[in-house]
Design a binder for these strands. Structure first.
Lengths: 210, 210, 210, 210
DNA sequence: GATGAATGAGCTTTCATTCAT
DNA sequence: GATGAATGAAAGCTCATTCAT
């Protein structure tokens, strides 16, 4: 659970700065070489400190990727935050938010790191749990949005709601793989088809799609 | 780089059989343990030959996974093959094929290996090329289907077509990540929302979606 | 329990020879540097093989010292074997056997290795168990000798017998420490006092010692 | 080699107090974890000062154990001190003192540390010298006792005296090893046989032992 | 063709020690 | 005097790869 080494530091600001150095360096290394391919030696060199010293801030290499994931979780939630802030109707809000979402998924570095973590999750229970926890929270936030007063599909069965949410998430996270498999693909090309699909998923199915 | 050892074999048929033994064994090991988790010792035991002997057929461990990807390309995108075989109308065909597609994406070991390959593509040019080539072929096959006579959207701009195809692919491949992030998710829950979304993507957008 | 790596070897004679090489080298290193002070690199160099290769014969560094102990146990039993082989009366037999026993305890290398193992036993449960098992077997062998027909103290209480055996063992094993603390001490000087003490411990106490 | 750091201290009394803090803490740690098992971090925490600061008082970790041995010498062999203080006859005095001696030798932590030092002596000349010097002093003290007027064996050859002293020491120090090899052994069981053996060693051999 | 013994570079991690503050 | 951040040289161990047979 606790990704931090239990060592006490006299200057917490310095310690936090050092932790950030390590996380930044490690993210970069993992992205380029993968979790298993990146060695502590390389990470330490890039972080500008000795390998041994890293262990004053992180208990293990595994603790480093866990911290990276936890950092990433907060960022993910900001995506959903904007839906609540918008006073407009939900479909419009979500569609306008989509632009940013697509751009992020198609970013090479962001995507590589996400894929690396997902692949690691298949073999590493701890990593899997962190990612699943994060995903569950994101789905719950989404459920709140979709069942709020202004939602047009607020009176759905739980199961249908679950299906819709997961397909929406699938749609977005699948873009990660598009980037890997078709790097030249442009955001606006995607949006041509993504917006109608999303609209379908945010409105009652019967409505006009017979 | 080259996935085959350049060694000449006196009995090419035997050599090919041996290569198959190795690929079969390695696929199984990689699926269960991951690329990094599976060792040559384990692969060689399962392939029924010595570890050293494998190097008469493959230049390296990396060459093995490259060969697996190459072999696996057809299967990987065979989901779309069946669309051509069906004489019915396209939407129906695709929806009926969806069942199998979803099931496969939700299989744990299959998904883990796919993710591992995709993550590897982010840092291994050879792997990336193989996967991209495979994806390109699949998209072209899809394009043929969607522009065939029986398609309802055969008169689209290339760009819109490209967008639709990529979003459809996104939708399916995103399920890989759903499996990793939400293992309890059931196929039928997904289908509730997946089918309407797919229908939207296979019909003209104006038609009934305001 | 099993001190051997589970790896199968096609030529057991070669494997056994390699194991011996390692055990000989490791004994020497442990003697000179101690268990913690001797590194696998040094052992492997002295054994004439790579460090990695040692792990084909022993599962860990700990397994090596365990094997050394187990080898030493057999040797220890040969000391007691001679008591049974002698047709003479017990006191004479044991006294004559004492010469060898003293000589061995005073041997520098033998003693250093024994001490190293005993010190390790204080922190390492596995090592402690092996040594204790060995000691228990030795005490039981001794008990058989002392309660055999020709023994003059065969009708003792168990407790007194236990006391005598342990004091005899103490007397001999204490010589290990004499060697460390007083290296110039000669065997014949020891024997002057050791033999009468031993005689006391092998005869009824009342007999003439009032 | 030199157990003290050569650093000059402005307040020698404070420096000495700090040295004692370190030695007390280190003794405790070594006793519980062994020389190799105890780290400077742990010692420094227990000593109430920073790890780095210890190096103002001791040149190295090794210097600490050397100082401990030097400090501990008197206590280590104080068993024999009491013989001089007793006004009674020697055999009685020694036998009564035996109780304490046995108890101490059978104490687990005390014994573990003694063994560790003795093992260390086999490879560390400085440690060996300190221990040998201490042992020599103890043997000389013993020699004085055994050649005092009240001793029954005061007219012995030097060689026989040396033999007797060393066997007596062997007998006691061998108990250290008994504790390691047979932890359940009780003090009273030992004493049953230890006392007669000791008596033999403190009286002329001819007297009643035929 | 086939083996598996053997290598050696690499891994993560630990810890005695140094030194700027 | 005193700190603890920082170092760096090990440590034990793994494993893809090579090669004599």
């Amino acid at each position: 659970m606790s990704e931090k080494s239990s060592k006490r530091h006299i200057d917490p600001a310095l310690a936090e700065a050092r932790r950030e150095q390590v996380l930044t360096a490690a993210s970069d290394c993992f992205r380029r070489k993968g979790y298993h391919g990146a060695g502590m030696a390389e990470i330490s060199k890039m972080a500008g400190m000795s390998a041994g010293h890293i262990y004053n801030y992180f208990a293990s290499k595994e603790a480093i990727i866990e911290a990276i994931i936890e950092n990433g979780m907060e960022e993910m939630f900001s995506t959903f935050q904007q839906f609540e802030d918008h006073p407009e109707d939900l479909v419009t809000a979500m569609l306008s938010g989509t632009d940013n979402g697509v751009a992020r998924k198609l970013d090479k570095d962001y995507g590589a790191m996400q894929l690396e973590m997902l692949a690691e999750a298949a073999r590493n229970q701890k990593v899997a749990c962190l990612l699943q926890r994060s995903d569950t929270q994101a789905r719950e936030k989404m459920r709140e949005v979709l069942t709020s007063e202004r939602s047009l599909i607020k009176d759905m069965t739980d199961k249908e709601l679950d299906g819709r949410i997961n397909v929406i998430f699938s749609l977005f996270s699948g873009l990660l793989l598009r980037r890997a498999l078709y790097p030249e693909l442009q955001k606006d090309t995607i949006l041509i088809a993504l917006k109608p699909a999303l609209k379908t998923l945010l409105l009652p199915f019967e409505q006009g799609c017979g």
